[in-house]
Design a protein around this nucleic acid. Structure first.
Lengths: 342, 342
DNA sequence: CTGTTAGCGCGTTCAA
DNA sequence: TTGAACGCGCTAACAG
């Protein structure tokens, strides 16, 4: 029972009425003065701005949102921020939105099950749109459509329900990696997969498998969790189930690859890439460190985030745009963690 | 000139009136039904909830905020998200706030100069409070006080203007690192600093210098930028200005230390820690990778974020709490990138 | 417990 | 160009 309500100083934050009184004009004049493209005479504008500055007045974005039905808020939903690939994405997104006068309401999920809770809040805040890098069910996806909230998926795609999306091409990326390893003479492949609930993880693994199949090879696949530790465990497991008969490891992301490299070097006493080739995916910062020089596919994060932001804003301004899907080719980073050829 | 305004579907999102009509009750009954601790009879509650579910009604948080003066929004300002230490902090913060029914408005700064722009938006959105991991001038800090917006600094402190803050103890951390290296017999120290505008960077460097001084040693100091590349450059520069006479490097953060280790190994052909000891600060993920096993101080991120969230919420609920400063001791990770003793 | 009423701060008609 | 009046969706007295 909260008996005493705190008296919040915010209560006193100046309103457009305060400014109007001080400037000797009407409240609506103040409103127009702070709204682009509205007609106010130079003289009154000056009076108003002076009064506003003196009072430290800033238009109340909450009240604006209530009346204009534009909160200038977008939700960004990211399932696991600790994935090394996401901080850069998030920073790019917020800065790009910010440049467009849009603020980011951040939702990070510790578990995929929290997505419903996040959606609830998203509806409540009447965000203008959402960028989602988390798994969404068809029902959840259609709720966005039903509520008229534009959405752009990031490195995800819709299922039955079509949705706008931006992603990096796993198929061509993995094909490039596989081809260059095959060309270099590798014959015994292993794959360390991502977590089962990761869309890109699945896609990358199946893309790699398919490409290997095309060359007439088959790979042993072990599960992983997109982190360093499961890269180590993955390689250990692969060595076990193949009785050591391996010369090329394809990892669903860079972190797995780094874990695998370290395990190969420090536990198995192997040289990378002389004894075993290991490739990743993403092109995160550590992939380029001297100790790893990962052979990998770098996602074009800047272009992808720019596209995501542009697509979302387009859909905010014009409601019924088709669910465009933009697929970006990754950049092959040769690195030196794999022998490549071709 | 925007001639045609888009017709946003959101226009039609159901209001409490819609629910009231459908349930055959008054609008205020609906309001009470969605407000904790308000009395509604079981029967009407059921009617209302049924109607609400059918319409997909969610209370409009924007309108709620307007009237209650509680937006349930807090701003989180982070200057450089790409600093490996922050993603974890951000994820912890948002999840903890979320658990308290509070949403996070994220501001990431590409440059410290953008802080004014961020503050402008913070005022406009009438956030209930802010967590700031960026440099704030005294004027900016007092504006928070003037506007009655509680703030908690993260790994920063106020200057003349006192402010609540949570941080990791650089002094004791660096002392521990220095002492253990001195005990192991190191005599020629170098320091790779953080960027000049980083508070923790400065603090760590001066703490290390002071402790070395106490032991009768002096260190060569070179500037750095908290990233891998400047760790490499820093070590190169240190070697140059000391003519190679170095056996211990203290880095202002882990990333610098990792860059220095790689440079020592791959460019200088030195063994770490046999030929040179290198220590960092933060305890980020890669610090524990097999290839580095950094000797460092791990920030207790979970406890620090928990404290920051608790302190902010306390100050939201009770306005004029004193500007408490909580300093957390870091955990010494022995690692194996430095010879330690004592 | 319930409905009525009066705003929260602002944007936007509409006359003047 | 300006001001008066209204309403966005909701909460919080208040009377019943």
């Amino acid at each position: 029972m909260k008996i005493e309500r705190s008296k919040n100083k915010k209560l006193n934050s100046p309103t457009s009425y305060d400014v109007a009184r001080k400037a000797g004009v009407s409240q609506s004049a103040v409103s127009r003065c702070f709204r682009p493209g509205k007609s106010v005479s130079k003289k009154t504008r000056e009076k108003i701005l002076a009064a506003a500055k003196e009072l430290g007045y800033q238009p109340n974005a909450i009240a604006q949102g209530l009346i204009t039905k534009r909160s200038n808020l977008v939700a960004v939903v990211i399932s696991n921020l600790t994935n090394l690939a996401y901080p850069e994405v998030l920073a790019e997104l917020t800065q790009r939105f910010s440049a467009q006068g849009i603020r980011v309401l951040l939702f990070t999920l510790a578990a995929e099950s929290e997505v419903d809770e996040a959606l609830d809040q998203i509806w409540r805040y009447r965000v203008d749109g959402a960028i989602v890098a988390a798994r969404l069910s068809d029902a959840q996806l259609s709720e966005f459509a039903d509520r008229g909230v534009p959405i752009v998926l990031y490195n995800r795609v819709g299922g039955e329900v079509a949705a706008a999306s931006v992603r990096c091409d796993s198929v061509s990326g993995e094909a490039e990696l596989v081809d260059s390893m095959v060309a270099a003479g590798h014959r015994h492949f292993g794959i360390i997969a991502g977590p089962p609930d990761s869309y890109v993880g699945q896609e990358r693994v199946s893309a790699a498998s398919a490409r290997l199949d095309k060359h007439g090879f088959e790979a042993a696949v072990v599960p992983g969790n997109f982190d360093y530790a499961s890269g180590e465990e993955g390689l250990r497991e692969l060595v076990r189930i193949t009785a050591g008969k391996l010369d090329a490891i394809i990892c669903a992301n860079d972190l797995l690859a780094i874990g695998a490299i370290d395990y190969a070097r420090f536990e198995l006493g192997m040289r990378v890439p002389e004894d075993i080739s290991i490739v990743g995916f993403d092109g995160v910062g550590p992939a380029r460190w001297r100790g790893y020089q990962l052979t990998t596919i770098r996602q074009p994060v800047r272009r992808m985030t720019a596209a995501a932001v542009a697509m979302l804003i387009d859909r905010i301004e014009q409601a019924d745009l088709p669910p465009e899907q933009r697929v970006f080719a990754g950049e092959f980073l040769a690195g030196s963690s794999a022998r490549t050829g071709g």
